[in-house]
């Protein structure tokens, strides 16, 4: 019994030391990996945005859309669209060891980029309104307008390649 207790006693400082080293190491590498993580998170947000837009678009192909799905999707699109500008902090472009198609013009033409993001947000609001009003005709027009807001920003601010 006492044997075990002493062994525990000698192990405890060692364990603490290892734990502390791990925590410090993790914190340090988190700091260094900040930009790859930001880029990765941004791409996941965009994938969710794409998935949600597709889900909503699939509904308007039906003769009887599921309006609950439509309302949820439209809400989420508006939420994501309002957050979009925060996914592009300065310095989160290419050259950090993670593939990204974020063009350098995002940061060299910040006003135009902000305007593109703003247009998306406005169209997402219109879409959400049509969804809330259960207006299928308006919804069809507005999902197309939303898609155009995505595409026009991609044409301008999404580079053709991940590398240059």
């Amino acid at each position: 019994m006492s044997n075990l207790a002493t062994r525990k006693g000698t192990f405890r400082p060692l364990m603490l030391l290892i734990a502390a080293a791990l925590v410090i190491g993790a914190a340090g590498s988190a700091g260094a990996a900040g930009i790859p993580q930001i880029v990765h998170a941004r791409q996941i947000h965009f994938k969710t945005l794409g998935k949600t837009a597709k889900s909503l678009r699939d509904q308007i192909w039906r003769s009887h859309p599921n309006w609950n799905v439509v309302a949820n999707d439209a809400n989420q699109i508006e939420r994501l669209a309002s957050a979009l500008p925060s996914w592009f902090p300065a310095g989160s472009g290419k050259g950090h060891g993670i593939r990204t198609r974020a063009s350098a013009t995002i940061w060299s033409q910040p006003q135009q980029f902000a305007r593109a993001a703003r247009r998306l947000f406005n169209r997402a609001k219109d879409l959400n309104q049509a969804a809330a009003g259960r207006n299928l005709r308006a919804l069809r027009l507005r999902i197309r307008a939303l898609g155009q807001a995505c595409a026009s920003c991609h044409r301008r601010f999404r580079a053709h390649s991940s590398w240059w």
């Binding site: 945005l49 998935k51 837009a53 597709k54 889900s55 678009r57 995505c150 999404r158």
Partner: peptide, 22 residues
């Protein structure tokens, strides 16, 4: 095929998921 924006897609894309369409 599904375009990145999820909106401009082929007409049969509604029978596949976003990932499959991509």
């Amino acid at each position: 095929a599904v375009d990145v924006d999820g909106v401009a897609s082929g007409p049969f894309a509604r029978w596949v998921s976003f990932a499959t369409g991509r």
